[in-house]
Write a protein that binds this DNA or RNA. Structure first.
Lengths: 338, 338
DNA sequence: CCCTGGCACTCTGTGCGTACGAGTGCCAGC
DNA sequence: GCTGGCACTCGTACGCACAGAGTGCCAGGG
C-alpha cells in the first residue's frame, strides 16, 4: 500500500503532466505544489511509484509521466468528478432546448460534448432493442406496392418499400394496418415476432402472401434497426493530441470511422454509472493511447443508449467526467420531455 | 502562349511531384521522361514556367513544385479523366447494389469514394427542393396530439409531432389526410404552400385551428428539410497529406465539421459537369491548400445533389476525377431504380 | 526510521561550423 | 535554339561541445 504522501505525489504528477504535457521532475513538483517535503524526498517517492508501475520515465534523466496504471489509480482514488459551473449548465440547457427532432438532439449533443471537453464526442442513438412500437403505418403506392413505416417511442422513423406478390386491396390494407397496430403498438421490439406470427392465417388465402411479405419486412426492419447508429463530432480536437500526433492520430481516425468499433467501445462500458477506459484497457489497438469516458443516458431511469468522449490518455479526467455526466443528464431530460 | 514542349515539361513536373511529393529538378525530369532534350534546356523552360507563375521553388536551388495556377492549367489542358478499370467498375456496382435504403446508399457511396480516391469523400443527400411529395400521413397519438409523416419521392421520411389546439376526431383526421394528399402528392415542395393555402376554410370552425397548425408544421418541415444534409467519410486519409500536415490538417478537419461550409463548397460547383477547385480557388480559408473535385448526380438527367472529394492540391487529378465521375454515375443509376 | 542536502552521473536539446549534394543560372559554342 | 560546362546558392546531414534538467545514491541529522 502506498502512503498518503506518495498518492499525493502521484496526483500532483498527473495534474502537472496533464497541464504542461511535459515530463515532470521532482524539483518542479515541490515548487508548484505544497507537498511540505524536499525534492530529494519526492525523488524517493517517485522511485517507489515507478517500481510499482504508476509512473515511468521516457528516458533516463527525464521527468516522470503517468502510466495507464497511474491514470487508473488517479481516476479511481484520487480524483473526483468536477461539477460544471452554473453558466456552463445554463448553456447546455439552452443549447439542447432548441432541438426540434431526434436527429437534432443527437447532433446538438455531439457538438456540445465536443466543445465542452475539447475532445472527440460520440453519441449513440437511443437503442431500439429496449424501445417500443408507437405506430406502424401502411401506405399503398401502387396496386402491388406498399410502403411500410415504423415509428418508435423514441421518435425514430423507419420506412421500407414492399413489393407484394399479388395486388392488395384498400380494404385488406386497412384491415392489416388495424390488426397489426392493435397487436404491436406499445410492445417491445423483441416481443413483436411472436405477436404477429399467426397473423397471415386470419386473412383470405389470396392476401396471405402479401401479409407474410409485409411481416417479414417488418421483422427485418426491426432487426436491422436494432443495429445501433451513432454520431461523432469534434474530430478536429484530435489535433490537440500532442507533438507526436502524426503517428497517433491515424489509427484513431481510422477507428472513429468504423462504427462497429465505436459501438463495441461504448458497448463495453458499464450499463450504469460512468466508465473510464484508459489506454491499453481499450480492446481496440488503434485506441491504445486514448482514453474513453462513457456513460449511459435515457429518458427514464433506464439507460437507452450511451454517449462519451475519446481523447488522449493525458486528459483532464475530472473535468471531462463532469461534462460527460452533465450532458448525459440533460439529454435524458430532453428525451423524457418529448 | 507556351510552346508544346513547355507544356510537356509542366505535365511531367506535376506528375512527378504528385508521385514523389518532392520538388522535382531538371535532371530528374529528363531521366524519368522522354523529353528528348537536355537538362539545360529543361532548366530554361522551367525558368519561363516560373516567370509565368505555373511553378515555384520552395527555396533557391531546390526543385520546382507546381503552383495552383500550374495545377489549373494541368487540369484544364494537359490531363484527361482517367477511366476506371473494369474490375473497379464491377466493384462499385456490387458494393452499391447491396444498399437497402437512402441512408445506406449515401453511406456506401461515401465509403466507396473515400476508398477509391484515398481522400476525404463528401456526399450530399438528394436535394428536396426539386423533390416531390410521395405521401403525407397523419396519425392520431392522443386526442389532441398528432404525428405528421412526410415521405418524398427520393425515399426520405420526415416526421413531426403536432400538438393540436383542440381535440381532433378520427373522421376529421381521415378527411384532412385525404384532402391533403389529393392536393400535394406528386407536387414539388416549392408548390405546396399555395396548394394548401385555402384548406382550413373548408373545415368546420372547431377544426380550423388544428388544420392550420398541421399545415404550418408541414410547411416548416418542408423548409427545414430543404436545408440539405450531407455525409462525409475517409477523414483518416487526411493523414496522407504530407510531412507538414500537423499545421495543414487542423483547419481542414474544422472545415469538414461545419456542414455549412461543405454545403457552400459543393454549392459553388457547377450544376452540370465536373468542377475542380484548386487551392486558393476555394473560398474557405482553411481549404486553401486543398482541392475539391465535385460533380452533380441524379436519378434522371437532372442533378438532384452533388458529391465529391477533398484532398491535397497535390493529388492525382485524372484518377480522382475518373473515380468521382464513375461513382456519381452509378449512384444515379441506383437512385433511378428504387 | 524518515527526511534532507549534496554530489556525481546521465541524458537530451541546442548551437555552431563544416562538408556535401542537389539544383539553378548563365555563358560560350555549335 | 539546343547543349555542355562551370560557378554559385542553399538546405541538410554530421560531428562536437556545452548547458540544463533530472536522477540515484550517500552520509548526516532530527
Amino acid at each position: 500500500m502506498l502512503s498518503e504522501r506518495r498518492l499525493e505525489v502521484l496526483r500532483a504528477i498527473v495534474q502537472d503532466y496533464v497541464g504542461t504535457e511535459e515530463p515532470v521532475g521532482s524539483k518542479a513538483l515541490t515548487e508548484r505544489h505544497k507537498l511540505g517535503v524536499s525534492p530529494a524526498t519526492v525523488r524517493n517517492d517517485m522511485a517507489v511509484l515507478e517500481d510499482e508501475g504508476f509512473i515511468a520515465q521516457p528516458h533516463t534523466s527525464a521527468g516522470r509521466i503517468p502510466t495507464d496504471k497511474g491514470y487508473r489509480l488517479f481516476v479511481d482514488k484520487l480524483a473526483g468528478v468536477k461539477p460544471l459551473s452554473s453558466p456552463e449548465r445554463r448553456a447546455i440547457q439552452n443549447f439542447l432546448d432548441g432541438a426540434v427532432d431526434l436527429d437534432d438532439v443527437v447532433g446538438r449533443t455531439v457538438r456540445l460534448l465536443a466543445q465542452l471537453t475539447r475532445q472527440v464526442a460520440v453519441v449513440q442513438y437511443p437503442s431500439l432493442t429496449r424501445s417500443t412500437v408507437r405506430h406502424v403505418e401502411l401506405l399503398s403506392l401502387a396496386p402491388a406496392r406498399l410502403m411500410l413505416v415504423l415509428i418508435t417511442d423514441t421518435g425514430r422513423v423507419e420506412q421500407r418499400l414492399v413489393d407484394c406478390p399479388a395486388p392488395f386491396g384498400e380494404t385488406s390494407l386497412a384491415d392489416l394496418r388495424a390488426r397489426l397496430n392493435s397487436r404491436v403498438v406499445g410492445r417491445r421490439f423483441a416481443d413483436v415476432p411472436q405477436l404477429v406470427q399467426d397473423l397471415p392465417e386470419s386473412f383470405e388465402s389470396e392476401d396471405r402472401g402479401t401479409v407474410s411479405t409485409v411481416l417479414s419486412i417488418l421483422l427485418e426492419c426491426l432487426v436491422e434497426e436494432t443495429e445501433e447508429r451513432l454520431m461523432i463530432g469534434g474530430t478536429s480536437n484530435l489535433t490537440r493530441f500532442g507533438h507526436d500526433f502524426p503517428v497517433m492520430i491515424r489509427p484513431v481516425l481510422e477507428a472513429l470511422e468504423e462504427q462497429v468499433v465505436l459501438l463495441k467501445l461504448l458497448g463495453e462500458a458499464k450499463d450504469s454509472g460512468m466508465t473510464v477506459r484508459i489506454g491499453h484497457e481499450n480492446a481496440h489497438e488503434g485506441l491504445n493511447s486514448t482514453s474513453v469516458v462513457a456513460v449511459g443516458y435515457g429518458s427514464g431511469d433506464e439507460a437507452v443508449a450511451k454517449l462519451g468522449v475519446v481523447g488522449p490518455t493525458r486528459m483532464d479526467y475530472p473535468g471531462t467526467m463532469g461534462a460527460v455526466r452533465a450532458v448525459a443528464r440533460y439529454v435524458g431530460q430532453i428525451l423524457a420531455e418529448s
